[in-house]
Nucleic acid binder design. Structure first.
Length: 174
DNA sequence: GCCAACGTTGGC
DNA sequence: GCCAACGTTGGC
């Protein structure tokens, strides 16, 4: 019998990774959010914005990464549930994400909504990921890579999901 | 807390 | 358009 693949496939064929500092917004915050959904506010980098605006589509899968964490790790999977729309925090003077140059008539910044699909039972730590040959080209693992919203190649996405499944299995004891 | 790498700003 | 100064990111 053919077994059904447990690797999720996105309709668009596109996959992403977003970074968040767990001190600011962790995967547990996402899990505790209404409908396990949050708006991805505060992106203030043009390249990251352009990915969200020009390429992200509803249904795309998004790896959730904890940066500035110990250890830094991919901690779960989410998906896009709302396409790009203006980020109101850019107009809020009290927000840390306030941008005085952004005009309401023509907003500079935007965001998408993402919904939690699953929190990995074992985080995939940065040091672990670096040892995986199939991931050697992954944007996240390149030196000096700081993009907070970045594309992930389909084969890399498959590898990450497969590793998360492997790590979730009980360790054999002899 | 340090600091390398990167992005942005602004004078010229 | 160049590039120095500055600010931010993020691993360690």
């Amino acid at each position: 019998m053919k077994s059904k693949s447990s690797i999720p496939a996105s309709k668009s064929g596109k996959y992403w990774l977003v970074k968040s500092e767990p001190e600011v917004f962790s995967i547990d915050c996402l899990a505790a959010s209404p409908a396990k959904t949050t708006c991805w506010e505060g992106v203030r980098n043009y390249q990251a914005r352009n990915f969200m605006r020009d390429e992200m589509q509803i249904g795309d899968f998004v790896l959730f990464y904890h940066s500035n964490a110990s250890p830094p790790a991919i901690v779960g999977l989410a998906k896009v549930v709302r396409a790009f729309y203006p980020d109101p925090t850019a107009f809020n003077k009290k927000s840390p994400y306030f941008d005085p140059k952004s005009r309401k008539e023509q907003p500079t910044w935007g965001m998408v909504d993402i919904q939690l699909v699953e929190k990995f039972s074992q985080p995939l730590g940065l040091d672990f990921l670096k040892k995986v040959p199939e991931l050697s080209k992954m944007t996240l693992l390149q030196k000096g890579s700081r993009l907070s919203v970045q594309p992930v190649r389909p084969d890399e996405f498959d590898t990450v999901i497969r590793l998360s499944r492997q790590l979730a299995k009980p360790v054999a004891v002899f």
